[in-house]
Structures are given as C-alpha cells and as structure tokens.
Amino acid sequence: MGYVINRLLQGLMVIAVMAVLVFIGVYAIGNPVDMLISPEADQAEIQATIVRMGLDKPLWEQFLAFINGALHGDLGTSFLYNEPAVRLILERFPATLELALAAILMAILVGIPLGVIAGLKPNGIVGRAIMTISILGFSLPTFWVGMMLIMIFAVNIGWLPSTGRGETASLFGVQWSFLTGDGLAHLILPAINLALFKTSLVIRLARAGTREVISQDYIKFARAKGLSEPRVILVHMMKNMMIPVVTVLGLEFGSVVAFAVVTETVFSWPGIGKLLISSIVHLDRPVIVAYLMLTVMLFVTINFLVDLIYALLDPRVRRKESA
C-alpha cells in the first residue's frame, strides 16, 4: 500500500512541476492577439481583446488564475473555437485513444512472437529476416509509409478506405470506430502505420530479452527438471522477458497517444494530434496548454499503471518497495 501511495504522490509532484513549466513555456512566447484580431483593428479593439483574454495582467497573476481554473477542471477557453480547451481535446481524444490502442495491440501481437522467435534462433534464416524487417520498420519515415499504405491498399487495390474514421457507434456515450465494420476498415491502415515503428521496437526488445533470459541458469534448470519446452518458454522465459518489454511499452503507449500527429495528418484521422498541429499554427495557447497538461497526466497515469504491472510481474520489486 505504501508503494502505491508513494507512487501517487510522486505523480502529483510531476504534474505540479509540469504545470509551472508548461505555463511559463507557452505563455512567454508569441502574441496570440496578433493572430486572432484582424489587421485593420484599432488600438482600442486590440486593448479590449487583451483585457478580455486576461493577457494584460502580470504573469504570476495569470498563472494563479490558470492554476485555479485547472483545479476546477478548466484549462482555459480556446481562442479559436471559443470552447473550453479540455472539452475540445476530450472530444477528439477517443479517436486518438482508439488508434493508439489498436497500434499498440498490433505491436504486441506481432512484435512479441516475432521477437521471441528471433531471440530463440538468432542465427537462423527466420531470425535474421525478422531483424532485417525490424530495421526497415525503424528507419522508414512514418509519413512515407502512410502514403505508401494509402497508395497500395486504398488506391491501387482498393481494399481499404484511406481517410477519416468511417462509421462510428456509441459506447459509454463516446463514439468509437472499431464497433462498426466500416469504422474498423478505416482503422486498419492508420493503425498499421502507427504500429510499424512500435512493432520494430517490441521485436528488438523481445529479442534482446529472450536472448538474455534464455541463457540464464534457471532456464537450464527448468529444462533439467524435465519441463516441456512450451512451459519453459511460455512461463519461465516469457515472464522474465516481459518485464523490460512492459516498462518500455507503457511509456511508448503514452508517446503513441501524444504524438500520433503524423499518422493522424496523413490519414485525416480526427484525433488530438491534428488538433494540436492546428493549435500550434494558430498559437491557440489554452488548447496547447490543456493538451500538454492532459498529456502529462496521461504519462503519469500510464507510468503508475506500468509500475503496478511491473510489481505484479516481478516479486522483487514488491518486496523492495514495501520494506
């Protein structure tokens, strides 16, 4: 229990520090008024807008107002849409979450088996082929692969749609694509695109983990006990090999959600990545700040969950932290 509380407090600290950094970083640059007001506006109009947006107050006052709002779940109102920034992001969040989950799922389902195979037979033809493919996955630029996917599967063969979320269905009051056949078809290409890099990463992690664990004495001892090979691999090897994979995947999941920008742009996927790009272009500060804050919270939450899973996988962690 102490372990959990400790982690929670650490998470809150991170969020508080980030709030200061994000606020200062974003509010100290550029002048949104120039972007928002027509060039013909006179001084009085500009002044009025500045006052309305609270930009005339000293920085610390703005910060207090920001913190006060943040504690009430209000991270400001978008200059551009004139809607609460949090709502704007949350509206688009399910689309990104869905895309990220599909990508991570693909990365796990494809990456771990391939990585284990490559780790068990590092010098075989199959093992080498897998590693070569993973190098491609690492080095090909995401936007190019995305366009190639569209060209091959949407334009040339015409199997899958190229842009948008397709038909969605409601679950828990949120619209999801994966619930309808059409939505699922729309999800496949962007998910593959987003998963490619992560799959390569998982393959490498799983391979390295497998190679390290497989040479351990406890694997040999498990074999010496007469255990079947599936049990040796799936229980004795996998449970140890998964520890680093889970850690990295957890962190990567955050980055997939936060930085799906390229894929969302290529496939016109209406997620938060696209929102972020347009907000940056228009210097829509509240949205950027809200986006960064929510991303920080997402990372902290994921880190927390990873720690919990980690403790679940590795009894030594449980022991050390509680002692």
Partner: peptide
Amino acid sequence: FQDPMMTLNPV
C-alpha cells in the same frame, strides 16, 4: 547447479 542465486526462477 553451481550458483543457487541463479537456478531458481526469480519471478
């Protein structure tokens, strides 16, 4: 085996 610290699966 030789090293008891390594023979039992830690997890």
